[in-house]
Design a protein around this nucleic acid. Structure first.
Length: 103
DNA sequence: TGAGTGACTGTAA
DNA sequence: CTTACAGCCACTC
């Protein structure tokens, strides 16, 4: 029995994001089978498990999230501590560090 | 139980 | 930058 709810799949994926890499809400949503549910990923991020590295999850532009606790500044600094440099609230080399579970 | 809200995306204006 | 519409599911109240 696979209790594969949308939320559980997102948890698994986010938990598997390697250090120094990031992914997008749309990608996570699509990977769990709901490409139009990017919003869900955001909701789950807010109400879900705070221990997961949501800071590695960014929007389609590779930019920082809107409601991250502490603001985008905190988010950018958090990413910097993982080796992810960012400029103007947009992660550097976004396409390069963009992680995918199929890889 | 039901309504409201949301850390998003895409297209359009 | 803004607003608007449409789509998805989970969470809070």
């Amino acid at each position: 029995m696979e209790n594969t709810s949308f939320r559980d799949r997102v948890y698994e994926l986010v938990a598997q994001i390697p250090l120094g890499h990031v992914t997008t809400y749309g990608d996570l949503a699509g990977l769990v089978g709901h490409a139009h549910a990017a919003r869900l990923v955001g909701s789950i991020a807010h109400f879900g498990d705070p221990d997961l590295p949501w800071q590695r999850v960014v929007n389609r532009f590779g930019g920082l999230a809107s409601g991250y606790p502490g603001g985008r500044a905190a988010h950018s600094e958090y990413l910097a501590s993982e080796g992810i440099s960012s400029t103007n609230h947009i992660v550097d080399n976004f396409e390069t560090i963009r992680w995918r579970p199929n890889l």
